[in-house]
């Protein structure tokens, strides 16, 4: 091969690397600007220092008031609950918590009895919440596994690593930041999203759950993830407590028996499923309002104290 051809190809590769880095950086920047909920970003950057972490789906996000836990237990606390997230997402988040600079000492895992072990259409691995943070190696590893991307290639090409964020990044200059939603991403300084009074959505009337757990099939992946979570926490010296938050005038008979079988290492399980019957404490069937959340968190504090937390 002639020397000038080699020079030509070398320059092309150099320009390619440069353009790749620039585009990747721009996508990453705009994607992070676009989203409202930046809790994972703060965690990765080591800006969250909390002794107690709360984890789970929307019932973790809306039902627990971290401020009360901070005041009562004199420990720092942060809520990582995310609406619509399943146990595989929670496991991924625990991985991030363990690898973070400020690892928690206590994890309150809010169990979604109807979704923890069973497939529900609206409870999923919320990769969209993690995508803007693929610049972080741990998050990138999780996302590559989820999307079956070639992880080694993400180390060479920033554009390839960030391409999962392309559309969100383009949305920012066109539409601006994600719309603030009072139910899902109106996050306070301690990571929680406490709901006011009653759901204004007319469809979200208080209903009687019709789930028959004995008719549902346990998802093996979810079951294994639940057990892995406990093993990981034990290996990292994180004390874990499982909490079943209140449901309005409902419950899932038989779930506690299933849950007990999945518990390892005698981790405590505190069941508040039938704790409240007053509709004024609920936002809708499955979620407390801020008043209910305060009462529930106070109950939890008492029980945590009894357990020596």
């Amino acid at each position: 091969m002639k020397k000038n051809n080699l020079v030509k190809y070398f320059i092309f590769v150099l320009v390619l690397i440069l353009v790749d880095q620039c585009i990747g950086t721009a996508i990453s920047y705009f994607a992070q600007k676009q989203i409202r909920d930046n809790r994972i970003g703060l965690l990765i950057e080591g800006k969250i220092k909390s002794d107690i972490c709360i984890l789970g789906s929307s019932r973790a996000l809306n039902n627990y008031n971290p401020g009360i836990l901070v005041d009562s237990l004199k420990k720092s606390c942060y809520n990582f609950g995310l609406s619509g997230s399943n146990i595989l997402y929670h496991e991924a988040l625990i991985e991030l918590l363990i690898k973070s600079a400020n690892k928690p000492s206590v994890l309150i895992y809010s169990v979604d009895d109807h979704a923890t072990f069973f497939d529900l259409q609206h409870i999923v691995f919320r990769k969209d919440a993690m995508l803007p943070y693929v610049y972080d190696e741990t998050v990138n590893g999780i996302i590559c596994k989820q999307l079956k991307k070639a992880e080694y290639a993400t180390r060479f090409s920033k554009t390839y690593r960030e391409n999962v964020n392309l559309i969100n990044a383009l949305k920012f200059p066109v539409y601006g930041q994600e719309v603030l939603d009072y139910k899902t991403n109106s996050i306070d300084s301690l990571g929680a999203n406490l709901l006011v009074q009653r759901d204004i959505d007319p469809k979200a009337e208080f209903r009687v759950n019709k789930w028959r757990l004995d008719k549902l099939k346990i998802n093996v992946a979810y079951w294994s993830a639940f057990r892995r979570i406990q093993e990981k926490c034990k290996a990292s010296n994180i004390r874990i407590v499982f909490v079943l938050p209140p449901i309005y005038n409902n419950g899932y008979p038989g779930f506690k028996t299933i849950l007990d079988k999945a518990i390892l290492n005698d981790s405590p399980v505190i069941d508040y499923t039938y704790a409240f019957n007053d509709a004024d404490l609920f936002f809708n069937t499955d979620h407390l309002n801020s008043k209910g959340a305060a009462l529930f968190t106070n109950l939890l504090v008492k029980d945590l104290k009894k357990l020596g937390f």
Binding site: L16, V19, D20, I23, T159, L166
Partner: peptide, 9 residues
């Protein structure tokens, strides 16, 4: 090349 990298998501 960049388009291929960008859209292989």
């Amino acid at each position: 090349v960049i388009s291929i990298i960008l859209m292989s998501n």
